[in-house]
Amino acid sequence: MHRSPQNSHKPAAMPIGGFVIDARGREIPITEEMIQQACSALEKAQQPAAKRK
């Protein structure tokens, strides 16, 4: 029986096509985790604004 790989463990953060330049000029790969964290932060920041309307 052929089994597809399961995501039972979190794979290493993989760059998804872009880089951030830090204060020292180093290229830091943008990972999916970084994007997910940024989206979560934006959602949290928008919640109080939505309640004011």
Rank of each mutant, 00 (worst) to 15 (best):
I21V: 15
E33Y: 06
D22H: 06
S8T: 15
G18M: 08
Q46E: 13
Q47E: 11
E33T: 11
Q6P: 01
G17L: 14
M1G: 13
V20I: 14
I35V: 15
A45T: 02
M34E: 04
I30K: 01
I21D: 00
T31C: 05
P48S: 02
V20C: 07
A49S: 06
D22W: 04
Q46A: 12
A12F: 06
Q46R: 13
I21W: 08
K51N: 07
I30Y: 06
R26T: 00
V20P: 03
R3T: 11
A45K: 09
V20F: 09
A50L: 10
E27N: 15
G18H: 06
Q36C: 09
P48D: 05
Q47Y: 02
P15G: 15
H2E: 09
R3V: 07
A41E: 13
I16Q: 01
E32W: 03
Q47D: 05
A38W: 10
G25I: 07
M34G: 02
P11T: 01
A45L: 10
K51H: 07
I28E: 03
M1V: 13
I30T: 04
M14R: 15
A23Q: 06
S8H: 12
A45E: 08
H9G: 02
S8D: 11
A49N: 10
K10C: 09
A13T: 00
P48E: 02
P29I: 00
P11G: 03
I21K: 13
I28Y: 04
E27C: 08
R52T: 14
T31G: 02
E27D: 11
M14D: 12
S8W: 08
Q37T: 07
A49H: 12
P29M: 01
I21H: 05
P15F: 08
M1A: 14
H2W: 10
I28G: 00
A49I: 15
H9T: 15
R24Q: 15
Q36S: 15
I21A: 07
Q47G: 03
G25S: 09
H2S: 08
L42V: 10
A38L: 13
G17C: 12
K10E: 12
R3L: 11
A41K: 14
S40Q: 12
Q6R: 13
E33N: 04
Q6M: 10
S8C: 08
S4Y: 01
E43T: 13
G25K: 04
S4Q: 07
P15R: 09
R24H: 14
G25M: 04
P5L: 14
I30F: 07
S8I: 12
A50C: 00
P15S: 14
D22F: 03
I35D: 01
I28L: 13
M1I: 11
F19V: 04
A23F: 00
E43I: 15
I35M: 10
I35G: 04
S8P: 00
Q47P: 02
E32F: 02
E27H: 14
Q46K: 06
P48R: 06
E33I: 00
I16E: 03
H9V: 14
T31N: 06
K44D: 03
I35H: 03
I21S: 03
R24Y: 12
A45P: 03
A41V: 09
A41C: 00
N7E: 03
H2G: 01
R52S: 09
K44T: 07
A50E: 07
I35K: 02
S8V: 08
E32R: 08
Q6T: 10
M34Y: 05
I30D: 03
G25L: 04
D22N: 15
D22L: 03
S8F: 08
H9W: 06
A50T: 11
S4E: 11
